[in-house]
Amino acid sequence: MAEQVYSAIDQDIFATVTEQIEQDLVIRESIKEVLKNLDKQLKQISATLSRVHSVPPSEVPNLITKTQPIFEAAKSDLHELVEKTKPYPYYKYNGMWQREMQNLIFLILFETWLSRSYLPTTVPVNALATIEEVGARLSIPINLKTEDAFHLTIEEYLHAIISLVEELTRLMTNAVTQRDFKRPMLISTFVKDIHSAFQVLNLKNDGLRRRGDGLKYHVKRAEDIGYDLIVRNLVDMGVEEKAEEKAEEKAEEKAEEKAEEKAEDKMQE
């Protein structure tokens, strides 16, 4: 082989690629930094709000007030993230903060639900903060389709709703322990409404589908507790919330019938 055998593979080709990877890693690292701070705030809010499971209903408004400054801090962390990721396509890094984002939305939904159903001043029918309300509260756009910028996705919001249902089902049991029998009935209606609303979605085989499928167990639990309370006359059927009356009529009629039957049985005995 007279002619020299040389490699035509330019090592710079690889250097160019690794250089870009390095840049990417730096961005990821800085996103992680912000997320760490955000996560700290979220844990604090979560710890405060979860005391709702153990304090009497009259204490709940206080808890909500306590979380307000932390929500503000979380919001400013979120906007730091928005600024940091502005130069890049939204979907390039969004996988990194989906968990935190879902958690943040959940906490907003939970806080809203609590304040709407515990504060004596307001009695709205919809205890669920809409996706628009959540977006407005965080000052970020929702469901952007044509523009490539930071936004709140429908999937994140739906995941957060499922978390809310999970949390409220737990609250149902704990409210009973507090001798608070009004809350379980509110929650029961809410869980059923959310469950039937989820039924209209055509979910593909993904995480949302799996979690959405679990909703029916929460409905079952809610119905069981509601039934137990009604059967034992622990909820006063006369002084019901308008919201319940609206959606619960049918279910309650049935339960009432059963209750009456039982009462009659007892009398006969």
Partner: peptide, 19 residues
């Protein structure tokens, strides 16, 4: 009477498009 139905029907359209 489900108050969340309109929002979810809207989500359905969006999710279908996405899928």
């Amino acid at each position: 009477k489900n108050p969340y139905m309109p929002m979810f029907l809207n989500f359905r359209a969006e999710l279908d498009e996405h899928h």
